[in-house]
Write a protein that binds this DNA or RNA. Structure first.
Length: 735
DNA sequence: TCGGTTCAGAGTATT
DNA sequence: TCTGAACCGA
């Protein structure tokens, strides 16, 4: 019976799927069938009765990945996947904490703060404590707190060796106390609190350790320190952890991911079975050769080489443009011809290193009338009007949620201004109450307004107590005055529609997966009563921010950052802006292993392409309101020459990008003329000229200032950064 | 409470 | 250059 399940797997995939119940590390290269191996492994364990569906825990980073796993599993096995523990780290921790809220020291109705909620809670904390937020910027404090939590550290455990950090630690402790008072947890707290629950509560820990004989982890290279600790704790000494990841695709160090977890896991669990999935089913040979050659420049790797049974395919096309505008114009032409050849727009991706780069491209596409879709943007549950409605719902569920209270106490406006709120906050502080509970402490007209607001919340709570979720939401958006408020606005129509969509989302939530799944999971463990549908919906809204932007369904070109492209694949891929300072990004140069992470990012970008890959860079680019002259990214030079096809004349090897090459006597004019840099003749140098410096190497002059002995040049030395040099001192050679 | 002005900052992002 | 946030005046 398992034959059908295993049919079509290659030897390595088969070996991985059918490994004995031991710690295993699967190095799964891009396009090597990673998700298939993961889901088939689960199906195989169940089908061969090595595990029951309840005995398996599978964890991912995104809801999308979790959903895909569930869907594929459902297609493989005739089982009910609903009660299974397949989800994101945060989703699973939420589930555990709901079931054991008392042991975890949380109210049953605890709310989850998203990043924006957390920031406003921090701002409020600083204000209340009279802290100078210039000296202690809320964002920095937020990063500090999250960083500490993601390392598994409470305020008391953070090492302090300077007064500034000491203050941060003090504020961290105050922040945690505030959250506890208000019954809210931030994202990192979900994990840390869950970790502490398991660490301190032996019966609970044993229960889950015994229950989950198999723990499967997707994208293991993206785990942070706390997530790895959590996995170790849950696995205990028995569970077989099946970790799947690719160190070459580790691109999230900046948000705490620790690739070192892979090597640590191999060592700490004495992994006997490291399996490499290196056969790639996605790309043609030249594309893989480029990826392999590039990533070989990284020193710290577990080591892997992708190969394909397909042919070499087309060469990788390289284009040098005179400017960012010309790069976009070329891209438009190329896309047009791809479309003319019958390729669907959705099969073409335009990738860039940073979001700001999409502007120029969008502009060109828009003018050319080519439909496109930009990834990344406001998501449904992040929209202001939706967050407002959710704040009302949160107050119904938990009146102590001061963040929610402040968000809507005067929205729509009901005559409760800053002064009143200050009084209220003072009263709350003095009495040790929540804002909601302190309303009686404010007198006069303002007090009456506040009381009316609390009355509204109370009556909504009582009157909707037994209504279906969708009707609760409907009552809230209606009686809060939100809908009326947006109706009255000239451009509020879309917001009204989003509020109505929220009612639909609530109905869908009850009907579908979410609530039923939460309920069964909790019930199965018999710890706590059922969470209300409302509580479930609010968690859902926090943990799953929803799709970003609409326009789906339409066949459109796909525009996104390289990060956003991870996990996706396209027939044709454009990697744009391949310039030093942009990709690799200059900010990464100050970071430990920054360049290697940028290179992995480039590796991810290259391996998105199935059949056709374009690389492009521009001689000049508008950045922060200034024209910057860049030099070609080193990454292009790290690719195998033979697999590249230059669409523009190749400039002299080693010369870097020689801007304004047409200035040189006898120099061939570039195919695409550059935007003429305004030549200022100072001491014989000119903007755009390539020069060589003894220490910094080759660079491009981007600015000339002063004269005589004070003449200075600003020079972009690429990886060495931009330097300002005195021409009378620096000995520059023309390159 | 709104709307305009000013100012700083500008990298990637899921939960 | 462009954006978002903070701030100030009506």
């Amino acid at each position: 019976m398992s034959d059908r399940l295993l049919a079509g797997l290659n030897d390595k995939q088969l070996a991985a799927v059918t490994l004995p119940a031991q710690p295993a590390l699967i190095l799964a290269g891009a396009g090597s069938g990673k998700t298939r191996v993961l889901t088939t492994r689960i199906a195989w364990l169940i089908q061969t009765h090595q595990a029951s569906p309840q005995g398996i825990l599978a964890v991912t980073f995104t809801n999308k990945a979790a959903k895909e796993m569930v869907a594929r599993l459902g297609a493989m096995l005739p089982i009910n996947t609903r009660g299974m523990w397949i989800g994101t780290f945060h989703g699973l921790c939420n589930r555990l904490l709901r079931a054991h809220h008392r042991d975890a020291g949380l109210p049953q109705t605890f709310q989850i703060l998203d990043t924006a909620d957390q920031l406003s809670a921090i701002k409020r904390l600083l204000k209340g404590a009279g802290i100078d937020d210039e000296k202690y910027p809320p964002r920095n404090l937020q990063a500090f707190i999250n960083g500490a939590k993601e390392s598994g550290l409470r305020a008391g455990s953070v090492e302090v060796d300077d007064p500034y950090t000491r203050k941060f630690v003090e504020l961290y402790a105050m922040y945690d106390a505030q959250c506890q008072r208000e019954g809210v947890v931030d994202f990192a707290e979900l994990l840390l609190r869950c970790y502490e629950l398991l660490a301190r509560n032996e019966p609970t820990r044993r229960h889950y350790q015994q229950r989950f004989g198999h723990i499967l982890v997707d994208e293991f290279q993206d785990t942070n320190t706390l997530q790895y600790k959590w996995l170790k704790l849950l696995a205990g000494s028995h569970a077989a952890i099946f970790a799947v990841g690719d160190d070459d695709q580790s691109i999230y160090a900046f948000r705490g991911a620790n690739v070192g977890n892979m090597a640590d896991f191999e060592r700490e669990f004495r992994v006997a079975n490291v399996i490499r999935l290196e056969q790639n089913y996605r790309s043609h040979g030249n594309i893989l050769d480029a990826a392999n050659a590039l990533i070989r420049h990284n020193a710290r790797r577990l080591g892997k080489n992708l190969w394909t049974a397909e042919g070499t395919g087309e060469p990788v096309r390289v284009f040098e443009a005179g400017s960012d505008g010309l790069e976009a114009a070329w891209l438009v032409d190329e896309v047009k011809s791809l479309i003319a050849d019958g390729l669907a727009r959705r099969e073409v991706a335009v990738l860039y290193r940073s979001n700001a780069q999409s502007r120029v491209i969008e502009h060109a596409l828009f003018n050319a009338g080519i439909a496109y879709r930009v990834y990344g943007g406001l998501r449904f549950f992040e929209r202001a009007e939706v967050k407002h409605a959710l704040a009302y719902l949160r107050l119904i569920e938990n009146p102590a949620d001061d963040t929610a209270f402040l968000r809507v106490v005067n929205f729509p406006p009901r005559g409760i201004g800053a002064r009143t709120l200050e009084q209220l906050q003072d009263a709350a502080k003095a009495g040790g109450h929540s804002l909601c509970a302190a309303v009686g402490g404010v007198a006069g007209k303002a007090g009456a307004n506040l009381a009316a607001f609390v009355g509204l919340i109370d009556s909504l709570r009582f009157e909707t107590a037994n209504l279906p979720l969708a009707e609760i939401v409907e009552a809230v958006i209606d009686r809060s005055g939100l809908v009326a408020h947006y109706r009255a606005e000239r451009e509020g129509q879309e917001r009204v529609e989003n509020l109505e969509e929220l009612v639909n989302a609530a109905a869908a939530f009850v009907a579908e997966d979410g609530y039923a799944q939460d309920a069964s999971g909790t019930q199965a463990d018999g710890a706590a009563g059922l969470p209300s549908p409302l509580a479930g919906f609010l968690s859902h809204a926090s943990l799953e921010a929803g799709e970003n932007q609409a326009a789906e369904g339409q066949d459109a070109l796909q525009l996104m950052t390289v990060h956003a492209a991870k996990g996706l694949e396209f027939h044709a891929v454009f990697i744009t802006g391949l310039e030093e300072g942009l990709f690799p990004h200059e900010n990464s140069m100050q970071e430990l292993d920054g360049l290697e992470e940028e290179r992995r990012l480039m590796y991810v970008a290259i391996t998105r392409a199935r059949r056709r890959l374009y690389l492009s860079f521009a001689q000049s680019r508008m950045l922060h309101g200034q024209t910057r002259y860049g030099i070609r990214s080193r990454f292009i030079g790290e690719l195998p020459e033979g697999g590249l096809k230059w669409l523009t004349p190749r400039l002299r090897e080693g010369a870097g990008l020689r801007l304004g090459g047409w200035h040189d006597a006898g120099g061939a004019p570039p195919a695409a003329p550059a935007a003429t840099p305004s030549s200022q003749h100072t001491s014989g140098y000119r903007i755009g000229q390539t020069v060589r410096h003894a220490r910094f190497g080759e660079g491009v002059i981007i600015r000339l200032e002063g004269s005589g002995t004070d003449a200075r040049a600003k020079i972009n030395f690429g990886a060495q950064g931009v330097k300002e040099l005195l021409l009378s001192i620096a000995r520059l050679e023309a390159a």
